[in-house]
């Protein structure tokens, strides 16, 4: 089996994890998580350098990832578990009492792989930039990555961060905008149009990459590799990644309706039928 085929099998299993976790908790955010699955698998399997068996908050000599749109927690937890940060079986505790897998990620319960809380939107870019500046100050050559929703860009703090990173040339930082064109109340076009996002980032002094096929694994890996080649050149880097919310499940795809809704038993069965088990489900 080629590497890309085995990574695609991981994507399928990740989607099963997301659906089973959200179904098990009877709450959560499947739509965005399903849409960003290729990004997470590409990032953690092909791009980042890290030591999942020996989690250190400081992450010295590692690449660090920050999830700003914390409601995508299910895909983050599945990814972290499947690359070895913690036991796959812990996924069943998602959103339950006494769990380390909070509804939105937090280091408060000591879950390996989590360095900052997110959930209240618009804050992760500032944290990532601070972390990138710390890397520079300590002459650590590794990079900082972060993910943000497109709707999340409504929050003003992002634009403080975007202005800062461009002006101060934070070029050891690669951020990605999960551009699924959906937010809670409907399409981003109907709620708050982002206009020419590429031009906006460029005007703030960023190097901008666009990837139209954000659910095509080969393309996501390629784009992230291209992004990496642009690091250290005096500009922060943004990848505008066009994704399909709810991707992989036909009745969840391309709509905001599954932003924050759990499938019922019947819907879960129907969804899982479209995503055959590849690496083994976590036990209930």
């Amino acid at each position: 089996m080629s590497n890309i085929e085995s990574l695609k099998r991981i994507c399928t299993q990740t989607r099963r994890d997301i659906l089973r976790m959200v179904h098990g908790a009877k709450s959560g955010h499947p739509g965005g998580a399903l849409g960003a699955t290729e990004y997470f698998v590409a990032l953690f399997h092909e791009i980042l350098h890290y030591d999942s068996k020996n989690f250190q908050m400081q992450g010295k000599n590692e690449d660090l990832f920050f999830l700003s749109n914390g409601h995508l927690s299910a895909v983050l937890y599945s990814t972290l578990a499947r690359v070895g940060y913690f036991s796959i079986d812990e996924l069943k505790t998602f959103r339950r009492l006494n769990s380390r897998l909070q509804g939105h990620p937090s280091p408060h319960e000591g879950l390996p792989g989590i360095r900052i809380a997110s959930g209240s939107l618009g804050q992760g870019m500032s944290v990532a930039i601070g972390s990138a500046q710390a890397k520079k100050l300590s002459k650590d050559p590794f990079l900082i990555y972060s993910l943000h929703g497109d709707g999340e860009l409504n929050e003003g703090q992002n634009w403080e961060a975007i202005l800062y990173a461009g002006a101060k040339k934070v070029d050891n930082y690669i951020t990605t905008i999960d551009y699924n064109s959906q937010q809670i109340d409907g399409s981003t076009e109907s709620v708050m149009p982002l206009g020419d996002l590429k031009a906006k980032f460029e005007a703030f002094g960023w190097y901008v990459l666009q990837e139209r096929q954000g659910n095509k694994l080969e393309q996501v890996i390629h784009s992230l590799k291209v992004a990496k080649t642009q690091s250290g050149k005096g500009k922060p880097i943004v990848l505008i990644l066009h994704t399909d919310m709810g991707h992989g499940v036909d009745f969840m795809s391309g709509t905001h309706h599954w932003h924050g809704k759990a499938p019922n038993d019947e819907q879960l069965e129907k969804a899982l039928f479209q995503l055959p088990e590849t690496l083994g489900d976590y036990s209930l």
Binding site: M57, Q58, I116, G130, Q133, G156, Q157, L163, Y164
Partner: peptide, 24 residues
Amino acid sequence: RFFQIGIAEAHMMGMAAGLAIGGY
């Protein structure tokens, strides 16, 4: 070791958290 943030206090608090993660 001094970061001039501009008039952007929300960003400053996030950046401080990021610098703390980096051991500062």
